[in-house]
């Protein structure tokens, strides 16, 4: 299949990528590519997705800009004294599937989580050219150590499920589903 790796071969080189600056280069990413992702991302999981979609569907203004953004599905543990963030590994992405096509059409260009996605999500990714990154389940301390700053953006009442802006440095990820719809799952 064109664009996919053969069974044999060298490991894919680790590729450094910065968001949102390098979002225009997402077209070159292929399912299976190993990436160190840096830059600015947003956190949002179940409850934040439900609220964002409710606002979008009723035509109201969003409390955050979604265009060109990357969303990380995580609900960190409480931030310990003197730390930037608590443990923040990925949660299961499939629970967000029902909301994701609407979120992608609102401008989100990348998602980070774990586990496969629905056919509807893959179709919406093809339509918008968005990319889905796989983060390693359980590695909450590793991802926490690579967060440089955390700032509350919206839905403070949701606690760990609120939307935060994170500055990240070298998140280890694998491209799980690329903009053409090719998938590692």
């Amino acid at each position: 299949m064109v664009g996919l790796h053969a069974t044999e071969g060298e490991p894919r080189p680790l590729r450094s990528l910065r968001v949102p600056d390098e979002v225009p280069q997402f077209g070159a990413l292929q399912a299976g590519d190993q990436v160190l992702l840096s830059g600015t991302i947003l956190t949002a999981r179940d409850a934040a997705h439900a609220r964002l979609v409710a606002l979008l569907e009723s035509g109201q203004e969003l409390p955050v800009e979604l265009r060109n953004q990357t969303i990380y599905y995580t609900g960190p543990t409480p931030t310990p004294e003197g730390k930037i963030i608590g443990s923040c590994g990925p949660t299961t992405s499939g629970r967000m599937d029902g909301f994701t096509p609407t979120i992608l059409r609102a401008g989100v260009r990348a998602m980070i989580g774990k586990g496969p996605r629905s056919a509807e999500v893959i179709a919406a990714m093809r339509e918008t050219g968005a990319v889905y990154f796989y983060a390693f389940g359980g590695c909450g301390a590793l991802y926490a150590q690579r967060v440089r700053s955390m700032e509350l953006l919206a839905f403070e009442d949701l606690g760990p499920e609120a939307i935060y802006r994170l500055e990240i440095e070298a998140f280890p990820l694998v491209v799980a589903i690329d903009g053409s719809g090719a998938s590692i799952f």
């Binding site: 490991p11 894919r12 299976g32 719809g181």
Partner: peptide, 20 residues
């Protein structure tokens, strides 16, 4: 694949991914 979408092409191997 047992979970993937039949419409989505899938690489047969991901060299180096397990080590990563």
């Amino acid at each position: 694949s047992r979970t993937g979408s039949p419409s989505a092409p899938r690489p047969a191997a991901l060299p180096g991914a397990a080590c990563f």
